[in-house]
Design a protein around this nucleic acid. Sequence first.
DNA 1: GGCATGATTTCGGCATGCCGAAAAAACTGC
DNA 2: GCAGTTTTTTCGGCATGCCGAAATCATGCC
Lengths: 217, 217
Amino acid sequence: MRSTAAEDYVKAIYHHTEWQPEPVTPSQLATRLGLANSTVTEMVKKLAAAGLVHHRPYGAVELTPEGRRLAVRQVRRHRVVETWLVERHGYEWDEVHDEAEILEHALSDRLLESIAASLGDPERDPHGDPIPAADGTVRRPDAVLLADAPAGHEGAVVRISDEDPAMLRFLADAGIALDARLTVLGVKPYSGSMQVRALRGTVDVGPDVARAIWLAA
Amino acid sequence: MRSTAAEDYVKAIYHHTEWQPEPVTPSQLATRLGLANSTVTEMVKKLAAAGLVHHRPYGAVELTPEGRRLAVRQVRRHRVVETWLVERHGYEWDEVHDEAEILEHALSDRLLESIAASLGDPERDPHGDPIPAADGTVRRPDAVLLADAPAGHEGAVVRISDEDPAMLRFLADAGIALDARLTVLGVKPYSGSMQVRALRGTVDVGPDVARAIWLAA
DNA sequence: GGCATGATTTCGGCATGCCGAAAAAACTGC
DNA sequence: GCAGTTTTTTCGGCATGCCGAAATCATGCC
């Protein structure tokens, strides 16, 4: 039970608790993985038998220490590959996800570490997500979700969720990239969108976008 | 029917006819792939249905033009990856095979070509095997199997079979590498081994080795 | 020509991952 | 507290690849 499928499941579980720590339900997992609920239930049972997750029937799913280790390892692999694709192979940051999704299961540890070393052992990936160290250590920057930032808050963009490639392109066009300094001007009443000042000018961002961007605290 | 398994089968079939053109039998395929005969028979039937091979029951297996295209593509991928591992990641030439075997199925065309370009589009891999071009063109050097070379023949090593990593290490120790100049001194009667002069001195090579080395014709 | 031997194929089975439909449990609002 | 909805689980099924055992074919030898 150390298949690529298992790696994908624990990574998805880990992913869910990485930036907002709530337990994950099977159906949320199914949505994220694009699988049927029944499939997830079955697989979770196998993962539990393999000691990678805790799960009581009809309850949420949580990683065991061992499952967490595997997940962190997988996250490291994914983000190292993404960084490598962008820095060495001319990929745009919205193009790397699918390729990394496959490669993270295919590279040996030796090759992965060689690639990481050739990049200078980076600590964050092109979206600002922290890259866990080879020993499993994770350093996460203090950050506030843009949607939760009060008016007047100012800070550099520390992370942009890689969930939606189209959004990544929209943000790139709007001049909002990693390390850009943003100032929260306020929420427009009833529209649900926020006004934000970037270097290039003022931008209105909808709630989806405001929940995809993290600012330095 | 374009699975990684299918890619492995057509590659194995192609491989067999690359340096000595004889048809492949299912059992030879099974041996090379490390599978049961029955498994190969079943898979060959599926490959035939998919138009990748010709096969009449109880007969040999041959690639269709389409199967050959797929095989050549796969060979290119494998050899580009091997070259990359040796040149950029400090692998020894006897260590690359397993990693390449996995990676050749996982890289996108885009990434593979980017890697090939970064290597200067090499035309042969660390063992001397020709790397097919991206368009499927294969250039093969004129070569004689050491075992078939007459006494007195002299020529550079053009290719060393990558079948047996232990043999590759033995040869490296003996100073026999790609491009080394060898002279065939003759066959030792009854022992079945050949005497060969290399730069570093005279070496006795057994029949296995003599069938793994090709010299420039 | 007949027959033994070895290669090939057929057959039932197994493991992994996936699905949809139906049953069971858990929440919800009133 | 209870009925309706939603979530989770169970169940039968399917596809891919693999296996060993048994049946079938091909071939060479006498």
